[in-house]
Simulated assay, not measured.
Amino acid sequence: MLNKELKGLSETKTSGLPPVHTWSPPFCGDMNMVIKANGEWFHEGGKINRPAMVTMFSRILWFEEGEYFLVTPVEKVRIQVEDAPFLVTGWQWVETSAGRAIEFITQTEDVLILGVDCDIWLEKFQNEERPYVSMRYGMKALVNRNVFYGIADCLEQVVTAEGSGMGVISAGKSYLLMKDE
């Protein structure tokens, strides 16, 4: 299951994602795969230690009606995700046509530009407020603590539709992260 269709996907980068949004394979059941809340991937109880394998699986991840699936043109298997399936592990400031912007890099080599292809927000998970960025197909990525602390050093006063307070401006778009009281 999911073997021949995955061949070659390990070479795929974000810009060359397979067209999973065009695939409508039949549901084939559940796979014993879990993406933990800390971003680690497990298969049949064992941690997947090969980053290339995690990246390969992430390229065929699909989110539908609150559930996660690995899909190929011929198969669709459900997996479990405790929180967010992706983890932002790096960031840097870059210049874009829309101005200075934050570039995020995930553990699966996805590259996202805040204000261009993703947004950032805070949300509760198990009574802890955590930062997330939007990802493809309605999925999200947890922003790793060290990345968020790095961004926190760049906070400035912003005003958004949600109110005013401290946040970041990226690609000309303001993000409120700490609301004034």
Rank of each mutant, 00 (worst) to 15 (best):
G45N: 13
Y175W: 08
I113E: 04
K36E: 14
M56V: 05
V71R: 06
W23I: 00
P19H: 04
Y175K: 05
S170A: 12
G29M: 10
I151D: 02
T108F: 00
A152C: 10
V71L: 09
L6C: 04
G8L: 05
V94N: 07
P26D: 10
L17E: 03
A161F: 07
E40P: 02
F27H: 12
W41Q: 04
V81W: 03
N3D: 13
Q157E: 15
M33G: 07
T22N: 10
R130T: 12
N32A: 14
S174W: 01
D119H: 11
R136C: 11
F69K: 03
G8R: 04
G16P: 01
A161N: 13
P25M: 10
G45D: 09
V159N: 14
G172A: 09
Q107K: 14
I48M: 08
S174D: 07
N49W: 06
A37Y: 04
E123Y: 08
Y68H: 15
N38D: 15
G8V: 03
A52Q: 14
C28Y: 08
M178Q: 12
W121D: 09
F57A: 03
L122N: 14
E82N: 08
L114D: 03
K36H: 15
N38T: 12
P19Q: 07
P131I: 01
G90P: 03
G45E: 09
V111N: 05
E95R: 13
K140F: 13
E162G: 11
I79S: 02
A37C: 07
G66R: 11
R59E: 00
G66V: 01
G99K: 10
Q80P: 06
A141W: 00
A152T: 00
I151F: 08
G138D: 06
G167L: 00
I60P: 00
S164G: 13
Y175C: 07
S15V: 07
Q107C: 12
T12V: 12
L155W: 13
D117P: 02
R130S: 10
N127K: 15
L2W: 05
I35H: 02
Y132S: 05
P73F: 08
T108A: 03
N38C: 09
E64Q: 13
G46D: 11
P73H: 08
N144W: 07
A152P: 02
C154Y: 09
N3V: 12
K7H: 10
L87I: 06
E181Q: 11
W93F: 15
Q80I: 12
T72K: 06
G90F: 04
F148G: 08
L17Q: 05
W93P: 04
I35W: 01
L17M: 12
L17Y: 06
S24F: 10
V147C: 13
D117Q: 06
K179C: 09
K76Q: 06
L70D: 00
E129L: 15
K140T: 14
G163A: 07
S15L: 12
T72N: 07
P19V: 00
K47M: 15
T55S: 15
A171V: 03
Y68F: 15
S97H: 11
Q80E: 15
F86E: 01
T55H: 13
D180I: 00
I151R: 03
M56G: 03
V133H: 03
R130I: 13
R145S: 13
